[in-house]
C-alpha cells in the first residue's frame, strides 16, 4: 500500500511539473493525487468494483481539492486536474484498442464499455464533489486568514 501511495504521488507530481503548477503547491497537489488513488484502492479492497471505486475516489479527490483551494487560496483547478490523472482510464483506452485489433471482440467490447463507465463515474464524481456549497469551503479560507494574521 505504501509503495502504491508513493508511486501515485510521484506520478501526480510529474503532471504538476509538466503543467507548471506554482512551486509552493507541488506537495499539496501531489498529495491530493495520492489521496485519490488511496481512496480508489480502499474502495476496491472493500469490493466496490472499478466504477463505484472511481466514483467514490473522484468525489473525495474533488472535495479535497476544494478544501485545499480554500486553505491555500489558490484556484481549485491546480489541485483537481493534476490529481485526476491516476483515475482517468488510460489503460482502458489501450486495452480496448488492443483487443479490437486482435479481433478479440468480446474483450474489446467489455473493456470499451468499462472505460466509458469509468469516464461516466468520474463525471458524476466531479459533479457530486462540486455540489457541496461553496460557502462551507469559504469558512475554511477565512479561518486560515485569521490564523495567518
Amino acid at each position: 500500500m505504501i509503495d502504491q501511495l508513493i508511486a501515485s504521488m510521484l506520478g501526480t507530481l510529474a503532471f504538476v511539473i509538466l503543467f507548471n503548477a506554482p512551486r509552493k503547491e507541488y506537495f499539496f497537489s501531489s498529495a491530493n493525487g495520492a489521496l485519490g488513488w488511496l481512496a480508489y484502492l480502499l474502495f476496491m479492497e472493500w469490493g466496490a468494483g472499478v466504477v463505484i471505486a472511481s466514483l467514490g475516489a473522484t468525489v473525495i479527490l474533488t472535495i479535497m481539492a476544494r478544501i485545499l483551494s480554500a486553505l491555500r487560496r489558490c484556484p481549485v483547478t491546480i489541485f483537481l486536474v493534476t490529481g485526476i490523472f491516476t483515475l482517468v482510464p488510460g489503460a482502458g483506452i489501450y486495452y480496448t484498442a488492443y483487443f479490437l485489433l486482435m479481433n478479440d471482440l468480446v474483450s474489446s467490447t467489455a473493456k470499451g464499455i468499462e472505460t466509458f463507465k469509468v469516464a461516466g463515474a468520474i463525471v458524476l464524481g466531479i459533479v457530486f464533489g462540486f455540489a457541496v456549497p461553496q460557502s462551507w469551503f469559504n469558512r475554511l479560507g477565512r479561518k486560515e486568514k485569521h490564523v495567518g494574521k
Binding site: L10, L13, A14, L18, F85
Partner: peptide, 18 residues
Amino acid sequence: LAKTLAAGMGCAAFGYIF
C-alpha cells in the same frame, strides 16, 4: 530537461501503479 525527467518519472510511477 526538467520536463523530460518529470515525464519519465511520471510514466515509471504510473507503470508501477498499474
